[in-house]
Write a protein that binds this DNA or RNA. Structure first.
Lengths: 249, 249
DNA sequence: CGTGTTGGACGAACGTTGTTCGTTACGAAC
DNA sequence: GTTCGTAACGAACAACGTTCGTCCAACACG
């Protein structure tokens, strides 16, 4: 952040015949890790919409073409960033006797990590998870269900559905985050207030004779925030899984 | 599709001083409906990635600027297309006594419609539903839950979660559809085969000592197709809702 | 120590994209 | 018959992902 591109300001231009030898710049050394880090930082600070190859290159004081030696393209970069984020999730030792509790904790943990890097979920749903840390999470989830007594084939689907729910919810949340940024706001609470007010106003304006239930219960529609909704749906799914577990009291 | 732009081929160019009067073209009349229809057709045939303002304009024999008189921008156009698709869902008369059955049928119906316009779900998750038909669906869902005896505030969250699940699954499916198209395939079955084989091969190649469960049960991981997975997760949620319904046998 | 070779860095450019500006010309209202 | 609002439109802008060809620094080898 200290030696940004500043040429063209306060400098005497070099004579054109001097074939522009770079004076003492010992040629930056890029690396995939450096590119991923930079991309993740941009994504955290400025959001997914601001994350472009050019933006990453600019942060690294180079041109966009330089990145392609380390990264196949934007899609791969997003997958790599996503997997780096997943590396932050902490997994406990599996304890099949407490499978439901652990499943719940796992979901909340993943949800927390995805929420911490607000916009990454918006890229996550678009990638097929084949990264190191993604598999690590899958092994935990799948192993826990199987050890708890679920048939492997059913456990596979249950894992898939639970993951979809977690990422889907995080995706939706990150959309709101993007909207907040687009509106120029910084405080999530302030945005939530205005968003809720906007929705409420809209629902109050629709014809009550056609949509009586929605209009009558507007306040209930906007009562719970994102975290409460996520937990409710999570328990819905977990209870459903529990009902399918063999020999359960 | 018959009178496409063909000037510049086989025609003597008009003298430059003739200020290019359009000869007999009675000025196309655009409309929002026409634009939505065109957009939906492109989305169905060529996918979301091919749907650009320029592409729509081209299909209408005009320039992209002409669209902005009827549509605020691409985002609004996508919302309008999405709501038009939602207009295809058929809703029965509500029967609270059979709420679970109807909820299930509703979910399958929405899923079917979203699947019929393969790529629309990829745009759906990105929009906040405020269209006519979206509200209509919401009223059905919400009313059904409340009439079945659920407290309105809880019904609001349950509706939200169920909707998220449906759209989220359709979104994931449409991603695969896009991948299929990108791979140049046409047959979904063929794509499914190759995709499954690819995933299986990948999972078989990861170190078994670190991920024993995943490696051992590769075949189970890829056993069920998208429709079966959707139904399993749906029943998971519906059972969870049932458990929360008051005074249920 | 000299010489080849290789792979990363990079400037420039291509083909798209969404959107805006300023102008034109039609159709309806007076 | 004139006026006037507004839809249509051509051109352009800024930004995007990606590719091509060139150039140089560092390594391997004799």
């Amino acid at each position: 952040m200290v030696d940004r591109k500043e040429r063209g300001e306060g400098e005497v231009p070099a004579p054109p015949w001097r074939r522009s030898r770079k004076p003492a710049q010992p040629r930056r050394q890029l690396s995939q890790d450096l590119i991923i880090d930079t991309g993740l930082r941009i994504l955290d600070v400025e959001g997914l919409d601001a994350l472009s190859m050019r933006r990453v290159a600019q942060e690294l004081d180079t041109g966009p073409a330089s990145l392609y030696a380390h990264v196949a393209g934007k899609e791969e970069l997003l997958e790599l960033i996503y997997d780096r984020v997943l590396s932050e999730i902490r997994l406990p030792a599996r304890d099949p006797a407490r499978w439901k509790e652990q499943l719940r904790a796992y979901a909340l943990e993943v949800h927390r990590v995805l929420g911490a890097h607000a916009d990454v979920a918006r890229a996550a749903l678009a990638t097929i998870p084949t990264g190191e840390h993604s598999i690590r999470a899958g092994e935990f989830l799948f192993g826990l269900l199987v050890e708890a007594g679920m048939a492997p084939r059913e456990a596979a689907v249950a894992m898939d559905r639970l993951s979809l729910y977690i990422v889907g919810d995080a995706y939706e949340a990150s959309l709101h985050y993007a909207r907040m940024r687009a509106a120029g706001m910084d405080d999530p609470e302030e945005y939530f207030e205005s968003f809720v007010a906007q929705i409420a106003g809209y629902y109050r304006a629709i014809p009550p004779e056609r949509f009586p239930y929605l209009v009558k219960h507007v306040d209930d529609l906007i009562a719970d925030d994102g975290e409460q909704r996520f937990r409710y749906g999570l328990d819905l799914i977990l209870d459903g899984i529990e009902a399918r577990m063999p020999r359960d009291p």
